[in-house]
Amino acid sequence: MIKKGIVMDYDGKNAVLLTESGEFISIKTKEKLSVGQEYVYKSKVKIIPKQFLIAASVILVLFLSLFYNLYYTVYASVTVSINPEIRLDINRFDRIINVVPLNEDAKNLLSEAKVKYKKLDNGLILIVNKAKEKKYINNEYYEGNPKSIKLLVDGKNINLTKFYKEIKKQKLNLNTLDIKNIKKNDDKTKLEKKENKIIPPSIKKSNDVPIPSGKKIVRPKYKAKKEKSVPKGKNK
């Protein structure tokens, strides 16, 4: 940046310049100046062009909105059932972005355990510890006993190694269910049911006949038409 102006004031280090465009500016210089002289000041600071600033801010806004979308998009859900039943929605960074208490006990538990924006592992450990404190988890949940903490996972590639280690360390029973497997099983059973329902007795009969049904219907009609189109005279 180059600024030209007349020296209005000078104290040995700093000077006040009045520029041709009517601006009073302060400059630092090692040169000896005298009041009244014209001085061309070259500053080392580069001015960033306006267009660049606009482009940069647009990119920043886009980037932020993209990140916001990414961050607040539910990537997977984990439902913990002890007696309190809690659904934890997580984003792709394994952070809990939404906590839904599914019963009264869950509300009670969550009032003391704030798990939102925590890593899923840490959130689950906190929930288990709080549940222990509140005595939702009693002796019946430990190894060799019938009850277990149920974990219903809906989503891809959820890393819960830290949580599993902690559960092992505490010798608790854990039952993890992947919703996909459940769905697949459900779908299979539904399909089987549907197949049973769909196949009507008439089709079953047609299956007994070796020729496909389409051919059976079309060919005779076509032949019949051909027979009709043949002029009577020619046959004679």
């Binding site: 209005m8 006040v16 009517g22 601006e23 009073f24």
Partner: peptide
């Protein structure tokens, strides 16, 4: 003069308006 550094508008349009 030192007061005028802070008090003089850096934006050209404002300076012209004041002129």
């Amino acid at each position: 003069f030192k007061d005028l550094i802070k008090s003089s508008p850096s934006h050209k349009d404002t300076r012209n308006e004041l002129l």
